[in-house]
Design a protein around this nucleic acid. Structure first.
Length: 889
RNA sequence: GGGCGGAUAGCUCAAUUGGGAGAGCGCAGCCCUUACAAGGCUGAGGUCACAGGUUCGAUCCCUGUUCCGCCUACCA
């Protein structure tokens, strides 16, 4: 490479697309690049086909890409399967909105034509998020991309439905379900979002039969009173006990209904009497069922959220909220409104359109979930699936243990049509293949169930349907169970739990061995990002501005387990600086190795700084590797940052400038520079794929040992040299000692100082003597004297380190007062530490009960501190004398 | 109502099994030293939320309190 080709700063825009295309062209995202490796597979949480990339996706994709690139470099047959989810309600909503612009709606178009429109829409816009994932650098095998409505996945859905039906695990039933009056479909319990809202608690008088007084009931939904079929009180409640069995009048109607007893009624709440509306409230439905005979059910609210004829002529056709106002008004007029109180309670909303949910009795399909759930609980309990961080296991268990049957039918058009047909003879046919004749009566007049399945039903099969099930291709055998599922906690139940249940049921094994639950990305203030708050940050703008590498590294560096990420552009900026540092380090190295003699291996490395940095590199590589093993992405990112910047650039590159002046050392140093750069690029590659490839491609062979860094070996188990580390620390200590004096006393950086070092031992002295040029350059010294037991010169600043003392004669350089101040500060600090330490050692309990090692350590520390204190005191006295002499003279 | 998590430097966060706390950013001082001012060197800054307890010793373990998040639940 030539340094003239390299600009002073890294410019991602020009480079990222180039390398992504290169990787694609070479087919490096395919598992076949490591044909003999152990399989490792990740299936992407399929984003909604309507979606566009948000921060959550960006984080999710980054972490998966880090894992898959890391594993790939370790030689695994790594496969990351991408794809999208058809997202029934969401997608249907989008297309409905679109055709509304054409002044039509889906009913006018008809089912078939509408579905065609959705597919057309999908073809045009559905690939957007996939394109965006590519911008992030995602190394998915795009040749295996799937869509939940693909032919293959649809076959999987039908197979699963039929099998569950045949086993009695899918059934149809009419009961109250969560109904969205805007989407006009049933929703599962999970799809209802509960939110605290301030409302009113309305107290209504219900006249007792026979005109003797009244009973007051409290409700948050006065309009549902039109569908009341009873009033319930607690049988233990002495106020009301004798009313049980009597009848009461329902105001605004001419109905009468019974007063019943039910233990579920809280005596303390409201008035202790509750109106019972079995057709519009889950609790009331239960209460009604417990009575014998059961209380009847009167539906006064229709599927569209408007009052039905059963609500009475005055209210029919009104929206439920208009009706609420009118009912209250009417009650007031009749003197039956006791009072209204402000009341905060939680209300269910449709997770898609936020409309308030209406419990409604309709026929729906359900999965009997308990038998599936109990297996799925076992799988996590015995560790076949590990959830990381493990804290989420509790949530998983408590949800799974209280799980209710899963309503899987949706009254929409876009999705997997339920594979059930009804014949006019009354027969129901459930089949994977579309039947043409009724096996009962031979009729060809078969009508398919109009409903489609919950989107999560198909995504629940994702880990095996994407691999080709119910066929059993090679992929299926090789990659199931997959390695790690990476996702946010908000779909732990929606999706993760269901994949575990269905995977166990149909594959006989868990779908993945690890579930890594990552954080939510919030804004700078810690607020959840949302369109309505206007605090959404578009990841693609960040990529455009700072490059995908800086963005990815930021996300990874903040992905600490169990804590949300507060995202701010400032941080990305910081990591862009980091990339620039890497870029310039590589420039420096290329300038210094190009056309020069380079050693051939570590055997030819002879200088201490090189041995030191190699050992530090080995240390960093091990720590990074084990951090990734434990999904501590932030630790891995921070360690590589620390190594590259603080150790490699701040120390080694500076030392190498001196070392390169020595012709005998130089070839080894050049080798070491390249080796470290190569290694750090590999370590960084999973986090920053683009810039690492860009630089790596310019390395000379044998460092560049393949066509791409993507398939280069990940560094681990490198050469360690603790002895070199320790010796180098002595040299670094001397340098820091001088620098510290210079810094504190404001010695001009250009000014050279004389340095004297009192070495603590023969070895220390020898090591220092062997590295004088390094110390001179780094400490800005023009002369150095090293001796064991060297006495301090009269006028000198002193720095007492652990293995040595540094003296810098101060005459002409600094003022003595400043140095006295500095030493006074040091003395205070040391004194405090020492007395704390001594106090401990005088404590008999400590001596007796603390482990020997700890006591010994404390003793050594105490000794060292004593020595240090004495030395500082000496220096202070010396300087004071000088000071006085100066004053007197 | 139940459950979970958090509270550590000005800010954002670390601290692998209890032995006097670290980083990044920011701040202050001095420097454009030929890889990088998107930089270098140096430094200041913390009763580890509060109160008890266990222990020779607690940021770490236990109990309670306060504040802040989130999940979950059929008090209408």
């Amino acid at each position: 490479m030539s340094e003239t080709e390299k600009r002073k700063s890294y410019e991602p825009q020009a480079i990222e697309q180039k390398w992504y295309d290169f990787w694609l062209r070479k087919g490096l995202f395919k598992p076949e690049v490591n044909p003999s490796g152990e399989p490792y597979c990740i299936v992407i949480p399929p984003p909604n086909v309507t979606g566009s990339l948000h921060m959550g996706h960006a984080l999710n994709a980054t972490l998966q890409d880090v894992l898959i690139r890391w594993k790939r470099m370790h030689g695994y047959r790594a496969l990351w399967i991408p794809g999208t989810d058809h997202a029934g309600i969401a997608t249907q909503n989008v297309v409905e909105r679109e055709i509304a612009k054409e002044k039509t709606d889906r009913h006018q178009l008809g089912r078939e034509e509408f579905i065609n429109r959705v597919w057309k829409w999908k073809g045009e816009y559905g690939g957007r998020i996939i394109h965006q994932l590519k911008k992030m650098g995602a190394s998915c095998d795009w040749s295996r991309e799937r869509f939940t409505l693909d032919e293959g996945l649809s076959a999987a859905v039908r197979t699963v439905f039929v099998k569950l039906y045949e086993e009695g695990l899918i059934y149809r039933s009419t009961r109250l379900i969560n109904w969205c009056p805007r989407c006009l479909t049933a929703l599962s319990d999970l799809e209802v979002e509960h939110e605290e809202e301030e409302g009113l608690l309305t107290y209504i008088r219900y006249p007792l039969e026979g005109g003797k007084g009244h009973l007051v009931v409290a409700t948050t939904r006065p309009e549902t009173m039109l569908g009341d079929t009873g009033v319930a009180v607690n049988p233990e409640d002495e106020r009301y006990r004798e009313l049980i069995g009597r009848r009461i009048e329902l105001p605004l109607t001419c109905r009468q209904m019974p007063i019943v007893g039910d233990a579920a009624v809280e005596m303390e709440f409201g008035t202790g009497a509750v109106k019972v509306t079995p057709a519009h409230d889950f609790n009331d439905e239960e209460i009604a069922k417990r009575q014998s005979p059961a209380l009847p059910s009167i539906s006064v609210i229709g599927a569209d959220g408007k009052m039905t004829a059963l609500a009475g002529a005055r209210y029919e056709g009104l929206d439920r909220y208009e009706c609420r106002r009118l009912v209250v008004e009417d009650l007031k007029k009749q003197g039956l409104l006791e009072k209204e109180e402000k009341y905060t309670h939680s209300i269910g909303h449709c997770y898609r359109c936020k409309t308030v949910i209406e419990p409604l009795a309709t026929p729906q399909w359900y999965v009997k979930i308990e038998p599936l759930a109990s297996e799925a609980i076992k799988a996590v309990r015995d560790g076949r699936v590990k959830i990381v961080p493990s804290g989420w296991e509790n949530s998983y268990f408590s949800w799974m243990e209280n799980i209710k049957d899963w309503c899987i039918s949706r009254q929409i058009w876009w999705g997997h049509r339920i594979p059930v047909w009804y014949c006019e003879c009354g027969k129901t046919i459930v089949s994977t293949e579309t039947p043409t004749v009724c096996p009962g009566c031979g009729s060809t007049e078969l009508k398919q169930d109009p409903d489609v399945l919950d989107t999560w039903f198909s995504s629940g099969l994702w880990p095996f349907s994407t691999l080709g099930w119910p066929q059993m291709p090679e992929d299926m055998k090789a990659f199931y169970p997959t390695g790690t599922l990476v996702t946010a906690f908000d779909i732990l139940f929606f999706w993760v739990a269901r994949m575990i249940m269905l995977g166990l049921k149909f594959m006989g094994d868990v779908p993945f061995r690890y579930v890594y639950i990552h954080a939510l990305v919030r804004d700078e203030e810690g607020q959840k990002m949302s369109k309505s708050k206007g605090n959404v940050v578009d990841p693609l703008l960040i990529v455009d501005k700072y490059g995908a590498d800086a963005f990815r590294f930021t996300l990874a560096a903040f992905a600490a387990q169990g804590r949300d990420i507060k995202f701010s552009e400032e941080r990305v900026k910081g990591y862009r600086h980091f990339i620039n540092k890497l870029w310039n380090a590589s420039r420096f190295i290329s300038m210094n190795v190009e056309g020069r003699q380079i050693a051939h291996g570590i055997d030819q490395v002879r200088d201490l700084p090189s041995l030191w940095i190699l050992s530090r590199l080995a240390n960093a590589a091990d720590e990074i590797d084990s951090a990734l093993q434990e999904y501590r992405f932030n630790d891995a990112a921070n360690r590589v940052y620390q190594f590259l910047w603080r150790e490699f650039c701040d120390w080694y590159l500076e030392l190498a400038k001196t070392g390169l002046e020595n012709e005998e050392d130089a070839p080894g140093i050049r080798w070491c520079l390249l080796y470290c750069l190569d290694s750090v690029l590999r370590l960084l590659h999973p986090f920053m794929p683009f810039v690492t490839e860009e630089i790596w491609q310019t390395l000379p062979v044998p460092f560049r040992d393949g066509e791409s860094i993507m398939t280069a070996a990940y560094p681990s188990g490198l050469y360690r040299d603790p002895a070199a580390e320790e010796r180098m620390e002595i040299v670094m200590e001397a340098i820091s000692g001088v620098r510290n004096i210079r810094g504190e006393l404001n010695v001009q950086p250009g000014a050279k100082v004389k340095v004297l070092v009192n070495a603590g031992s023969e070895d220390v002295a020898k090591t220092l003597m062997g590295h004088l040029p390094y110390i001179k350059r780094q400490a800005g010294a023009d002369s150095i004297i090293v001796e064991m037991g060297l006495a301090a010169p009269r006028k000198a600043a002193v720095n007492v380190m652990s293995r040595l003392e540094v003296y810098v004669p101060v005459e002409g350089l600094i003022d003595i007062k400043a140095e006295l101040e500095r030493l006074g500060k040091e003395l205070r600090k040391t004194g405090e530490e020492l007395s704390f330490c001594m106090k401990k050692l005088m404590d008999q309990d400590f001596i007796k009960r603390a482990p020997e090692q700890v006591v010994a350590k404390e003793k050594a520390k105490c000794q060292e501190l004593e020595g240090k204190k004495a030395n500082i005191e000496d220096s202070i006295n010396r300087l004071k004398n000088i000071f006085q002499e100066a004053e007197n003279g």
